[in-house]
């Protein structure tokens, strides 16, 4: 973190690295009369935590839904891992290596931890219609996944219903991290957690980054963004109005950019 007398921050928008894991150019989408995205551009580098901040309704969730294949943007380009992509479904995005940790976690409470980790990715053996689940293999793989990542290890055979909020978040993140994903999108991963559990999840995020995962983090918590991220994008009214290296900005500047008190890096669209 730098103080305000440091060199002027470099707008990231003019500094797209050649090997960015993800670039979004001019993505726009409208739902009826509501223009949720009005030409948003951003990028994320490999092996970094890239944060997206912005007020409610700024378009953060819509942007990540475009990236994770829930919505298809009306116009604009998304390039992932060197290829231009157009995901029709979340499944397609998942196959390409984009995993999303949903805000509501997308866990089935009555299934066990290992069943959730392998949901729709079950290990089966046998041929043709006689394919049976390899429960043993999934349990032991799940055990490895959970114990190598999470600090607060839940037993893989217990039902998710019995887990604490932090443990559920850990399971959700393990699921996203466990399957050779190239980019993990996390939507408010600590919004519902207490102080200790938040610290554990942050530890997990740092760990994933150190293992080489690229992470896209949506958060309302500026302190957390400054702690965890390498780059920050600020969204306002459906656009990414500014991007900064986290080391070259501070909380005040980000707040100013979010509220519009500070001008962004791109000309404001005439209303």
């Amino acid at each position: 973190m730098s103080d305000t007398t440091a060199a002027p921050a470099v707008p990231l928008i003019h500094d797209v690295p050649a090997d960015a894991i993800l670039t979004v150019e001019d993505a726009a989408i409208a739902f009826g009369q509501v223009r949720a995205l009005k030409g948003a551009s951003m990028h994320a580098r490999r092996g970094e935590v890239t944060a997206i901040v912005g007020d409610n309704g700024a378009g953060k969730s819509t942007l990540i839904r475009c990236i994770s294949g829930v919505h298809a943007p009306d116009s604009g380009r998304i390039t992932f891992d060197g290829h231009e992509v157009e995901f029709k479904t979340p499944h397609a995005a998942r196959d390409a290596g984009i995993e999303t940790v949903h805000q509501n976690l997308a866990l089935v409470e009555d299934l066990t931890v290992w069943q959730n980790l392998f949901l729709n990715r079950e290990i089966v053996r046998g041929v043709g219609p006689l394919r049976l689940l390899d429960r043993r293999a999934m349990r032991s793989r799940a055990d490895e996944m959970v114990s190598s990542l999470a600090v607060n290890v839940p037993a893989v055979g217990s039902r998710v219903r019995r887990l604490s909020g932090g443990q559920r978040q850990a399971v959700s993140i393990c699921r996203a991290a466990g399957f050779a994903s190239k980019l993990i999108i996390m939507d408010e991963p600590t919004a519902a957690l207490g102080v200790q559990e938040t610290a554990r999840v942050e530890e997990l995020i740092t760990r994933l980054k150190s293992e080489g995962h690229a992470i896209l983090l949506i958060s309302h918590n500026f302190a957390q963004v400054l702690r965890l991220s390498d780059a920050v994008w600020v969204m306002r009214a459906g656009r990414c109005v500014a991007g900064r290296r986290t080391a070259q900005t501070d909380g005040d500047e980000i707040v100013g950019l979010i509220t519009g008190a500070r001008a962004g890096d791109i000309p404001v669209e005439a209303a």
Binding site: P90, L105, A106, L107, V108, D110, L111, N120, L132
Partner: peptide
């Protein structure tokens, strides 16, 4: 119900249909 993918999907659909479809079930 307990040893095929289909069975797991049945339980997942009943347990939390939203979560199940988010994971592609």
């Amino acid at each position: 119900l307990f040893h095929t993918r289909f069975g797991t999907y049945v339980l997942a659909t009943g347990g939390n249909a939203e979560a199940a479809s988010a994971t592609g079930v």
